[in-house]
Amino acid sequence: MFADLFAYFYQFADVFAFLVLSAAGLAVIFGMMGIINMAHGEFIMCGAYATTFAYHAGLPLPLAQACGAIVAGVIGIILEAVLIRPFYSRPLDSLLITWGLSLVVTQGTLIVLGSSMPGIGTPSGGFHIGEYGFSTYRMILFAAALCVLGFIYLLFKRTRFGVHARATMQNAGMAQALGVRRNRIYALTFGVGAALAGLCGALYAPTMTLIPTMGATFIVESFVTVVVGGANVLLGTAPAAVALAITRTALNGLYGQVFGQIGLLLAVVLIIRVLPEGFSGWLAKRAS
């Protein structure tokens, strides 16, 4: 009985972790800056590649993964200054620019690094409950997803940077008048978002084949989580991921992976028909 329950939970945790980790970076950038980063998948790819390089260079996996996140974050900060900054007030234009960037990076990687590279291999630890076997690494991913949610909450609720970032999001002009340096806030926010995307890639690098188009694997899930979550990351991402993970797990169990994905999408389209501002918009309205 407990083993069965745990097996369900394990499935749920797996999907939940995937949704949260793949969406976190996108959600932070969208929630704090109003920009949809279409190159999100490429930051994930970048994190995975950097992790793999570092691992093959001899670093232990956790350190290599930290490297992956940091590399993606630094690249994010640089790109923000070059490409994104002129378009704060034009969210659709910044979306198009990051999409162009995504094309260039994916195809450029294909040319420079070829169509695939040797991976890392999933850490093999496992455990048994009843007659079922479970992978320890999947549980680590679940824990990492919870940590990421906690990190985002603490960063934006409890630090000076977070308070400034939220003030800038609410009213950039007023925040600037109060001495907040908007450009620095945006650069750091974008960097945090990119680093979280990189972390997603780093964490999943051992579990999948490394190809330059791997970002596309994550992009649908990250998009739908952000759409369902709504504009407020702190409020929306976690409930959105829970709702979608339950839907997905149930559909996967009943009808298989393909219909899990299609059903997830149908659920999303229906949810936004009912809650056009996502979970966070709905929660905010109920609270007022």
């Binding site: 620019i97 162009g100 260039v104």
Partner: peptide, 13 residues
């Protein structure tokens, strides 16, 4: 495809 990406970025900018 890279050219297409560059064209998109340059056009929008």
């Amino acid at each position: 495809l890279i050219l297409m990406g560059v064209i998109l970025i340059v056009t929008v900018m």
